[in-house]
Computed example of a mutant assay.
Amino acid sequence: MTEKIRLLVKMDIDGAQVRITAHGRLTSRSLHALYIVARRANALMHGLALEIDVSGANVDPAAMEALRRCSQSRRLPALIDPQQSDVNISVRSSADAVMAA
């Protein structure tokens, strides 16, 4: 698996949904890039449902914990979003897929 993170963004503006799919290795360091993409997507439309799918990525535990905190708080880190806009964010991981099976 590659050390770089690759992000694919799929948008359904009519349904007010965005899915960001991550591949490669997601670390606390590369998480910054994912947060920037999430902030830009969230700025497109108020109330947008934003799903971050990391089920196909190798995710470091610290990065997964940071994503889960964002999902619970409905905020991106202040360094990324100083205005602390509401974010309707959910995280899908390989552990979730296994639990759903």
Rank of each mutant, 00 (worst) to 15 (best):
M1R: 12
M1F: 02
T2N: 13
T2W: 10
E3I: 11
K4W: 10
I5V: 07
R6L: 10
R6V: 11
L7R: 08
V9H: 05
M11C: 13
D12T: 04
D12R: 08
D12C: 12
I13W: 09
G15D: 06
A16M: 13
R19M: 15
H23R: 15
G24M: 01
G24S: 02
L26A: 05
T27N: 02
S28K: 09
R29P: 06
A33R: 05
A33F: 11
A33Q: 12
Y35P: 00
I36W: 05
I36P: 00
I36A: 10
A38K: 03
R39W: 10
R39T: 01
A41H: 04
A41R: 04
M45N: 10
H46R: 15
L50S: 00
I52R: 02
I52C: 05
P61H: 09
A62Y: 13
A62P: 04
A62F: 07
A63F: 13
A66L: 04
R68Q: 15
S71Q: 15
S73M: 10
P77Y: 01
P77H: 06
A78P: 04
I80K: 01
D81Q: 02
P82Q: 00
P82C: 00
V87T: 03
N88K: 12
I89D: 00
V91Q: 07
R92G: 04
V98Y: 07
V98P: 09
A101W: 09
